[in-house]
Nucleic acid binder design. Structure first.
Lengths: 325, 325
DNA sequence: TTGTATGCGTTATCAG
DNA sequence: CTGATAACGCATACAA
């Protein structure tokens, strides 16, 4: 395959001039520029980007650590990221980690190895301390509230958001509230759990172990939850569900079993996913798409300006009232 | 950041020895090996992979051209790909292209630029001729039936698969069959359309424009389709739907409107997605996960052996009988 | 078992 | 506006 040297020789110029043409630098005469472009065309030349990456020290790529690529929760964030990346001419390397620390570390190692210019962590199981070790190698933005850490973050306050959802149910008169949580990996899930317990304490509602349901991620899990509810001697009168798709599965299965929503069981979701609109699901909008766009803007700024100063950006949530409460 | 030269100097060996240790080559004495490893540890050294990529001419990465990252149809294929990539120590670069040719070409250009070792095209809008131009730069596998082309492919025969689904409906006594199709970008969608028309001809059923419904991708589209059906003077008695999630949305909405399935309307899907199991959807299994694993194995083999000979691998489909027909 | 020297393909530096 | 040359960090043929 032809290289820059060959182009230079054939076009009768120096490699520097070829490089200048390649990078749209000024100070190249039109004569030489067209000579170079013609030779490039003739030899079907294309750059070896690995050489460019080596000498420039940049790759124009950022990696995204994301547990599951096919969960709509994460898809919305990716959408936001992708939109901004396109504008900035950056490539996104989506790394599905399944919450496995060794996979997550592999991605951070890519930063250390100069394969990428930065990392956006959508959700992870690794600690802030470990992440901080890698900030020396490039900017890192985490889409979680990690407190006063040495890397940047974009987040909503899950505690307040979740409490306000619970308060909404309370205001509507529900007094036997159950709780569905996803996988207990991320820090946000445990924060939501705390919010839930605090709410029970504050309103004097008893804590009932059987109304705490975990590992709910997919619509099928929602179906499972409904069957679980059907077997209970005493059922909750309302459910707060972290994940609109779980709520969707439950609602569908509830219809099949003749359970009226919200009369027999009220549901409030947490995500504001498109499917929620279809089903009339009342839910909490936690700005997932904006989380993606903001995360990219922060990391891009830090790459461009070699800015190592961590930024913490809080997004606001709001309740979307529909018909399941 | 430390480099291999510095390690060599500090460990009192040559750069070659350091390189040998780094790559687990034999013929390094234990004494020197540990000396090198200690220095690496002490200086917190890590390789600049861009230099490795440049000199080796490989990146241990393959790109995946995929229209939408969050469609379950594609997720299953990705799952298969990811599984094999992990085993082979290869990185997967997921490129969401939205069927935009310029984005798709960008990925193929990455192959040309040596940024990746190969490309798996899950679905694309670009022609075989254009793809063939890029086979000169590295192996390409397409997850579609492209006939006798100069790149590798993994596919099911959409024509037969779709016809057998239609035949299944016919055998069950349905004579007024409608058809839902996704976006009309890929070649497979037009093949399915032909299969549908041929089926109508073969069974003497009339072609009814209003029973051909297009641009159905999401569950929400399924909801839309049901409303569309409700407005018809004469409705089909069965529907073949390309995409189980569309079928899911339609089924859910049908329940809400008191339409009995399969009594009022039979449904057969096309994908065999997990959600179909939840809903008891009769569907056609087109081996999406196996498509991913097979695609990776082919491309990996071609990378390893510098094998430019295209491979064409056909996968078998089968009908999964459940309760919507 | 070890080291020297060369090359990968590009951009940066600096002198003209 | 142009070009010679150094540098990026590593792997490897070859010599010892």
């Amino acid at each position: 395959m032809a290289n820059i040297k060959e182009i230079a020789r054939m076009a009768g110029v120096s490699v520097t001039t070829v490089s200048r043409v390649l990078n749209n630098h000024p100070y190249v005469s039109e004569v030489k520029r067209t000579a170079v472009l013609n030779t490039i065309e003739k030899l079907n030349y294309s750059r070896n980007m690995n050489a460019v990456h080596l000498i420039t020290g940049r790759t124009q790529a950022i990696a995204v650590i994301i547990p599951y690529i096919n969960l709509f929760y994460f898809s919305l964030i990716i959408e936001g990221l992708a939109q901004e990346a396109l504008l900035a001419q950056y490539r996104l390397i989506l790394c599905q980690t399944d919450y496995q620390p060794e996979e997550e570390i592999k991605v951070l190692e890519m930063l250390r190895n100069k394969e990428i210019d930065g990392v956006v962590i959508v959700s992870t199981s690794i600690s802030s301390e470990v992440i901080e070790e890698y900030t020396a190698y490039g900017p890192i933005v985490v889409c979680q509230d990690r407190g006063n850490c040495q890397f940047s973050s974009v987040y909503i306050e899950h505690y307040s958001a979740f409490r306000s959802g619970l308060q909404y149910l309370n205001d509507k008169g529900y007094r036997r509230i159950g709780y569905c949580e996803g996988r207990q990996h991320g820090s946000s899930s445990s924060i939501r759990q705390i919010a839930f317990r605090d709410f029970l304490n504050a309103t004097g509602q008893p804590y009932r172990e059987e109304w705490m349901i975990y590992d709910c991620v997919t619509e099928e899990d929602g179906v499972r939850v409904l069957h679980h509810l059907l077997e209970m001697k005493q059922r909750p009168d309302a459910l707060i569900i972290s994940g609109d798709h779980v709520a969707a599965g439950l609602i569908i299965e509830a219809w099949k079993h003749g359970i009226q929503i919200p009369e027999d069981l009220a549901i409030i979701g947490f995500d504001n996913q498109p499917i929620g609109r279809t089903l009339g699901l009342t839910t909490i909008d936690n700005q997932l798409s904006e989380m993606g766009t903001t995360a990219f803007r922060i990391i891009y700024d830090q790459i461009q300006n070699n800015n190592r100063h961590p930024v913490h950006h809080k997004l606001e949530y709001r309740i979307i009232e529909r018909s399941t409460v």
